[in-house]
């Protein structure tokens, strides 16, 4: 290639690049004044201890009788439950409450199981959500289960997923029960923890 030709090619490349840069920087940047105000408010849907919180549980640990431990965060927006089930079916009634403290809004509530329990084959573990003061009714044999129609929803703690619980009206209260079934003949599992989220969003 002749020297002139190489010079022409170089000039052309520089020219194209310059044109591209010019186009790129040719955007007009317009600045509109905007403000974002964060106004923290007290949580409207939260947890409260149920009537069985702190109650006697099965068994003894380190010489002390076990209790149904319900730990609620300072702002009632977190919850830790610890219970001591045994073989066959162990049922914990009304261990915690879900409360809507809003005087105006209803909330749609779901529970997401982010990290499930790992239990022996045939085992069951459910959170069961009841309306306040609902009569409990178990049916079936040899494994009792809550009678359909007596509760709002149940959440399987042995698998991941999100369960839509329903709409809790302003000032509404739900009671939460826990059912655990471990078949006889298996080795009792080591301590297990399921990690969940209570998800709430205004629906009105």
């Amino acid at each position: 290639m002749a020297a002139n030709a190489r010079q022409l090619a170089a000039v052309t490349i520089i020219a194209v690049a310059s044109l591209a840069l010019a186009i790129a920087y040719a955007h007009v940047m317009t600045y509109y004044p905007t403000s974002v105000t964060v106004s923290p408010t007290a949580p409207e849907v939260g947890f409260a201890p149920g009537s069985n919180a702190g109650g006697a549980d099965i068994g003894v640990t380190n010489g002390n009788s076990n209790t149904i431990t319900v730990t609620i965060g300072q702002n009632a927006t977190s919850l830790e439950l610890t219970v001591h089930p045994t073989y066959q079916t162990t049922y914990y009634q009304n261990i915690t409450l879900i409360e809507n403290n809003s005087t105006l809004k209803s909330y749609s509530v779901s529970i997401e199981v982010a990290s499930p329990l790992s239990l022996p084959s045939g085992s069951k573990a459910y959170l069961i959500i009841y309306s306040k003061g609902a009569t409990r009714s178990l049916s079936g044999w040899p494994i009792p289960t809550p009678t359909t129609g007596t509760y709002i929803a149940e959440v399987d703690l042995t698998s991941t997923g999100t369960t839509a619980i329903g709409t809790i009206s302003s000032g509404g209260v739900w009671e939460v029960d826990l059912l655990i079934y471990i078949p006889e003949g298996v080795t009792l599992p080591s301590q297990q923890t399921a990690e969940l989220y209570l998800i709430a969003t205004p629906s009105s």
């Binding site: 959170l127 969940l196 209570l198």
Partner: peptide
């Protein structure tokens, strides 16, 4: 609103 929750089972005889 996501509110963290945990359920711990400590099995006993």
């Amino acid at each position: 609103v996501y509110e963290p929750t945990s359920a711990t089972l400590s099995f006993v005889e």
